[in-house]
Amino acid sequence: MVTTFVFVLTAAVMLVAALVAVLKNNLVHAAMGLVVTLFGTAVLFVLLEAYFLAVAQVVIYVGAIAILIVFSIMLTRRVGADWGQQTNATWPFALLVAGLLTVLLGLMVRGWAAVTAQPASQAVPADMTARLGAALVDPNGYVVPFEVASVLLLAALIGAVYVAWGGRKAEKDAQG
């Protein structure tokens, strides 16, 4: 009961925050809306008793990605405010398509047994995080994705630094 109430409340807050993120002209406000949405996701994880995912969500998305977004907003030329029109002439059609898609997805989900059926109440094991850790480096588990993820992140870093940063000298030259 309480869980349902918290869920509905969180979902409502998340929806409003998501709308703020999309509709606000002031980019910093939009970023804050995004932060609230991401935080709401963490709350949903807690409701699902996925505590590790909840804290990881906050650490990575709120702690790192949101700050990155705010920093990149500060790099734009007309900082944080674009007072131009946010939509173009075809928005009614987009709305129509999005609406149809929502209805279609809703119909599909309604017919899906996994959603309507009550799940067997299964207690989450206490050593969830340890099991996750063991599975991550288990050769029969996820060790390949685990190591590939590290290579991917290394590649991402190299790419990002290469694109964003030509080194101190190049930066000085660019400034004239």
């Binding site: 590790f52 804290v55 906050v58 650490v59």
Partner: peptide, 13 residues
């Protein structure tokens, strides 16, 4: 708290 150490980092943000 079962994930306390990361919780501290998360709240620090």
């Amino acid at each position: 708290v079962n994930v306390a150490v990361l919780y501290l980092v998360a709240v620090g943000t």
